[in-house]
Each structure stands twice: as C-alpha cells, then as structure tokens.
C-alpha cells in the first residue's frame, strides 16, 4: 500500500477526474457536517427558549406575589 500519485498536482487532478471526485467529497462532507451541527444548533436554541420561558414564569410569579 503506497501513495498512488506522483505529485500533489497529480493527486488533485486525478488524471482529469479530479473535479468530479473532489466535488463528491466536498458535497458529502458538507452534508455530513450539516447533519451533525443542525441538531446541536437546534438543541442550543431549544434550551435558550426554555430559559426565556422559565424567566418569564419567574416574572409572572414575582408580579403575582407583589399584587
């Protein structure tokens, strides 16, 4: 098992097939990264929403106590 290309240039061009191969790897990894980060972002946002809701509830309780 060894590096299959003569040079970095050769590795990028892949005897003419480079654009196709690299496009595939680029798109795939973009989608994979999106798949990982979209639930993480969503989780963050949900927690922030819950926090806002809790704060609001606290304020409601505060007002109720003063009244």
């Amino acid at each position: 098992m060894s590096f299959q290309f003569d040079s970095l240039q050769d590795f990028i061009q892949m005897s003419g097939h480079g654009p196709f191969v690299w496009a595939c790897y680029g798109i795939t990894f973009a989608v994979l990264v999106y798949l990982v980060f979209s639930p993480l972002v969503r989780r963050r946002r949900l927690i922030r929403q819950h926090q806002a809701w809790l704060k609001q509830m606290d304020r409601v309780r505060e007002v109720a106590r003063q009244a």
Partner: peptide, 19 residues
C-alpha cells in the same frame, strides 16, 4: 482517495464509490 489503487477501467473516478 490516496492509497487505494486506481480502477483499471474507470481510473480515478471510481474513488467516488467510497461515498
């Protein structure tokens, strides 16, 4: 991408198979 040998028919384009 770098260490598997190229396909004797398809050359390097076959490397897409790994995805």
């Amino acid at each position: 991408l770098a260490f598997a040998p190229p396909d004797y028919q398809q050359g390097n384009s076959y490397r897409i198979i790994y995805l």
